[in-house]
């Protein structure tokens, strides 16, 4: 079984984020990293390789030149090789554009199972995996809190708002995993050094046969017209509990009509 893991290079969540004049995240000005939520997919793929269920694990990213750093981090955790789709025309792509590029790259690389994170920690859309599945005509099982593969069947557990589901689908399939699947291992020094020797292939839109007009700004189906910081909350009353803390809290809740 060949697994391709989709990994995104994102701004560090705790950094001070800036926006470029075109209202995209200023990725050059902010420190980046492999999306923490994609590390769970990397870990699952690595476990499937260790258990013998997968014989090849490839990491795939669509992103700027610096996104190679994210691929190196993934390769330090596991995997055999990586593919980096990088092209200036991709800048400004919406989820539709990104999913098109990912799907074309997946067709070129070949796959039985595509693993992804549940959401990117920057855009937080949780739609790219289903979009990729739709474009590939592959089955889909999203938001897996647990994952197992048996022959050509992949089974997951997922929690919806009203139920806990166990779903099995046949390969080829796209599966997104949540942070319930288990922390990614911390790569040892030797693994980090070893990752530098694993091959990373770069591809352009031309290599994938994607028309530049379908992606980036020209192909975008929506545009951000305003980004503003969430209004800062002014800190309210903070009291020290001298024995009356509970009563003061109850009075506050009652004052707002909650109790």
């Amino acid at each position: 079984m060949k697994i391709v893991v989709l990994v995104k290079y994102v701004p560090e969540p705790t950094a001070t984020w800036k926006f470029a004049p075109d209202l995209t995240v200023d990725r050059a000005g902010v420190e980046g990293r492999l999306s923490e939520l994609d590390e769970y997919a990397v870990e699952q793929a690595t476990r499937l390789a260790e258990s013998g269920a997968a014989d090849e694990v490839v990491f795939l990213t669509v992103g700027p030149a610096k996104a190679t750093e994210g691929l190196r981090k993934a390769l330090a955790i596991g995997g055999t090789s990586a593919v980096h789709v990088v092209d200036d025309a991709i800048h400004g792509s919406c989820a539709l554009g990104t999913s098109l590029v990912l799907a074309k790259a997946l067709e070129k690389i070949g796959y039985d199972l595509v693993l992804t994170g549940m959401a990117s920690t920057d855009a937080e859309l949780s739609v790219v995996p289903s979009m990729v599945a739709d474009r590939l005509g592959a089955n889909q099982a999203t938001f897996a809190g647990e994952l197992s593969v048996d022959g050509s069947t992949v089974s997951i557990r997922r929690d919806t708002d009203v139920a806990s589901e166990r779903v099995s689908v046949s390969l080829p399939a796209v599966v997104s995993v949540t942070d319930q699947t288990g922390e990614a291992r911390y790569p040892a020094f030797k693994a980090i050094m070893g990752a530098k020797k694993k091959p990373i292939q770069t591809m352009s839109l031309a290599d994938l046969g994607v028309d530049a007009a379908q992606v980036g700004w020209s192909g975008a189906s929506s545009k951000v017209v305003d980004v503003s910081p969430t209004p800062a909350r002014t800190a309210g009353t903070i009291v020290n509990d001298d024995g009356t803390g509970a009563a003061q809290l109850a009075d506050f809740l009652a004052g707002r009509g909650f109790i």
Binding site: T237, A247, L249
Partner: peptide, 20 residues
């Protein structure tokens, strides 16, 4: 926080829904 209590939750929480 709109309202905060610096204290042990085991002491504060149980009585927090009983208003004066």
């Amino acid at each position: 926080a709109d309202f905060g209590v610096v204290g042990d939750l085991h002491a504060v929480l149980p009585a927090s829904s009983t208003r004066s």
